[in-house]
Write a protein that binds this DNA or RNA. Structure first.
Lengths: 155, 155
DNA sequence: TTACGTGCAAATAATTTGCAGTCCC
DNA sequence: GGGACTGCAAATTATTTGCACGTAA
């Protein structure tokens, strides 16, 4: 909440860097060859500020609206795709419907809380996957996704 | 192809058992409390006959139409859901769009061939997952899904 | 200015649902 | 016959796209 207020349209956009752990969102966009528009600056900050790290387009949209950021859902989708293509976000498929985006691009895996429809990082190193099978001829591993689905204990 | 011809509407439905590795589809449906309608018998046979084991609703629909089985997409979805709920099929999320159903309900994992949009079983035992993390308070593991995404080698 | 971006609304795609008609028990 | 089942078409949900207008370099 705090961090994103600095991106409200009426605020000076040059002050955002300090509030975003990822560093300077403006620099990040520049490095990607993307214009630092108000929408992208704001979304970049929401996405890379500490706090929430697994988000759907719809969730990000609601979060942005809550922060009075003027942005359309189409732009949310565009931006998420651009950042994903750039390798700054990781897309996680959990069920056949919503798509989650994760701002942690290190090798790690996820818990999925079925009752809350929520993704949670599994701390790095706490799961070992051994004996990764050799891919069929002509293929190489692009990435490995491990999702441990959790249900509420009934006992 | 061969196996499903026996389920064409004009054929005697009592002969299907021999052609379906799962056993007697009629008995299976009975055990689930589902009426052995022509559609369900035919779909049950397509799903549990050897051969294809990872299928989407759309794929099953096309396969059924190819076999002259008269069935609607809505019924495909209904049936897939019923069989999944009954534990006879396993649903696998691969990307944010299509949902795959797998007729292998043993613990196993998948390759996903990104270029062909195809799921392939990884032989059981060829991947070890160790140190499964302890779920947060109040939760237990419902299932673990490991998908190894493969891309075509560019080299 | 001028190409890149954005918002809106319409288009897709996958799946679900409501309901009238059909088929097993 | 009666309720379970099916098919169709309309409704939903998630996402993409086309295009007129806005805005950063």
């Amino acid at each position: 909440m705090l961090y994103s207020l600095k991106f409200a349209p009426e605020q000076a956009p040059d002050t955002e860097a300090a509030s975003c752990p990822w560093g300077d969102v403006r620099a990040m966009l520049h490095a990607l060859g993307l214009r630092p528009t108000q929408q992208r600056l704001a979304l970049g900050c929401l996405l890379f500020a500490k706090g929430r790290r697994h988000i759907t387009a719809e969730m990000l949209y609601e979060e942005a609206r809550g922060e009075r950021i003027n942005v359309s859902l189409a732009t949310i989708y565009n931006t998420l795709k651009q950042l994903t293509d750039a390798g700054l976000l990781r897309q996680v498929a959990v069920d056949g419907s919503k798509t989650y985006f994760c701002n942690n691009t290190t090798e790690h895996h996820h818990f999925y809380l079925e009752d809350r429809h929520e993704l949670v990082d599994i701390p790095e190193g706490s799961v070992d996957i051994n004996n990764l099978p050799i891919p069929p001829e002509g293929y190489e591993i692009a990435k490995t996704d491990l999702v441990i689905r959790l249900r509420r204990k009934t006992a």
